[in-house]
Design a protein around this nucleic acid. Structure first.
Length: 136
DNA sequence: GCCAACGTTGGC
DNA sequence: GCCAACGTTGGC
């Protein structure tokens, strides 16, 4: 069964445009147990919203998981994982955090409730709703 | 095993 | 730039 996720990145570190340019990327650097466990739960084909934190504070595109969890080679110590993601399509209209806050059906999502979690699960209805807000 | 101190994230 | 939230670390 297909699952839905949201990943966050500061665009100054790695942006949607970087992902588009690269074609696909290894999602490394996660150093939080909850986020890591979410990475490990991802299946190929799962869809992933790409959120720009700090600068923009917008959901900017939809990506997909193209390789399930494997060891994060950037980790010097500890048991950390990475997945590979590839872009599917940008949102026609980036969806702002402010916008998301105004939607009653979205007030419970992790982006609002657990704002620091960098890899979050998202229900299919919530995923679709955000994509729709983005004109997709 | 508790909890204070500390570090980081990320919205404002 | 500030600070709240919260995860992690380390002393006891």
């Amino acid at each position: 069964m297909k699952q839905y996720w949201l990943v966050k990145s500061e665009p100054s570190a790695y942006s949607w445009d970087d992902l588009v340019r690269d074609g696909r990327t290894s999602w490394t650097g996660v150093r939080n147990f909850t986020a890591r466990n979410n990475l490990r739960a991802m299946q190929e084909g799962d869809e992933v919203l790409f959120y720009h934190s700090v600068v923009g504070k917008t959901v900017v595109g939809v990506a997909k998981v193209v390789r399930t969890a494997y060891r994060d080679a950037t980790a010097k110590e500890g048991d950390w994982s990475a997945v590979d993601i590839a872009p599917i399509k940008p949102l026609k209209q980036p969806v702002t955090l402010e916008q998301i806050k105004t939607v009653p059906q979205l007030t419970e999502i992790a982006l609002l409730r657990l704002s620091r979690l960098s890899v979050q699960p998202l229900g299919e209805p919530e995923f679709r709703q955000i994509v729709r807000l983005g004109g997709g």
